[in-house]
């Protein structure tokens, strides 16, 4: 009996070491969030647009829902037509085109060619676990994750070991106290992980996106959680501010002109 207990304890300890080793190996993966994580801070307001000073033919203005709308008919400024974009004609042209690109643009194209775009739906239960649902090659996959997927929002692209990921997911929140809400299973570890409950566990392609999200979370949990909490706080503050200070619609000015076309323009009909 004592020997059996020792074996069980040994197995549990061994399993714990093995899980930690796997997680340690995974945490060595090079992970990067591209474009930063939004913390909810609004970008600074854009400066008001200044329209070119064109000779006004006729102007009308009126107030609508508290804002001033000005319509200015102006003389045709005769702006040139936009230059048509050159198209690659041969392999040499393509090479020249590639060489002409900036490093940033090359990186963007590289990201597009080496990116996994995937989508899934996520239902977060009690901010403690998330029910995941996605499809791959027409098959349905479902899993439970011990990650609060609210934290995995606020960015658009990330990179794991040189591979780009563009996740798109619909996310909802619910409570286990609500009728019909599934209870999350017990997870074997407190480290970010998931348990597949439906679908082929051997299909690595189908699991790649979800695996990558967990790898990312293992590496960036602190930053992602802090940014989420900041977004929530900022959103609440913004909501309170807007309730107290309803925004005034911005005035708008539109200039328009009849363009004189060289060969087949319509006849001006203004009275």
């Amino acid at each position: 009996m004592t020997r059996l207990r020792r074996v069980v304890v040994f197995l549990i300890v061994y399993l714990g070491i093995w899980i930690n080793l796997v997680e340690a190996q995974q945490s060595d993966e090079k992970v990067e969030i591209l474009g930063g994580i939004s913390d909810g801070t609004s970008p600074p307001p854009k400066p008001p647009k200044v329209l070119p000073d064109l000779p006004v033919v006729r102007e009308i203005s009126h107030i609508d829902t508290g804002r001033l709308i000005r319509m200015k008919r102006v003389e045709d400024p005769g702006y040139p037509e936009p230059e048509p974009k050159p198209m690659a004609q041969s392999e040499n042209d393509e090479e020249a085109f590639w060489m002409s690109l900036s490093d940033e643009r090359k990186a963007e194209i590289d990201a597009i060619n080496n990116a996994l775009v995937f989508s899934l739906s996520a239902t977060v239960v009690d901010h403690r676990a998330t029910r995941l649902h996605w499809r791959h090659n027409g098959k349905i996959y479902e899993a439970w994750s011990n990650v609060d997927f609210n934290h995995l929002t606020g960015f658009t692209r990330f990179k794991v070991d040189g591979r780009y990921y563009d996740p798109y997911f619909g996310i909802g929140n619910t409570s286990s106290e609500m009728e019909g809400v599934e209870k999350a299973p017990d997870f074997p570890t407190r480290q970010p992980t998931f348990i597949l409950t439906r679908g082929d566990a051997g299909d690595t392609d189908a699991l790649e996106g979800v695996e990558a999200l967990h790898t990312l979370y293992r590496a960036e949990r602190g930053r992602l959680k802090t940014a989420y909490e900041k977004r929530e706080m900022t959103s609440l503050e913004r909501q309170r501010y807007l309730e107290a200070n309803p925004p005034k619609p911005r005035d708008v000015t539109i200039q328009f002109w009849k363009r004189e076309l060289s060969d087949k323009s319509g006849k001006e009909e203004a009275p």
Binding site: P48, K49, V50, L51, P52, R58, I60, M71, R73, D76, P77, Y79, R250, D251, V252, T253, I254, Q255, F256, W257, K258, R259, L261, K264, S265, G266, K267, E269, A270
Partner: peptide
């Protein structure tokens, strides 16, 4: 504030807006 009558020709306008 404009009205155009079609005459079998192309009608073209330009715009800028704040």
């Amino acid at each position: 504030p404009l009205i155009e009558s079609g005459q079998g020709l192309l009608i073209a306008y330009g715009f800028t807006s704040t």
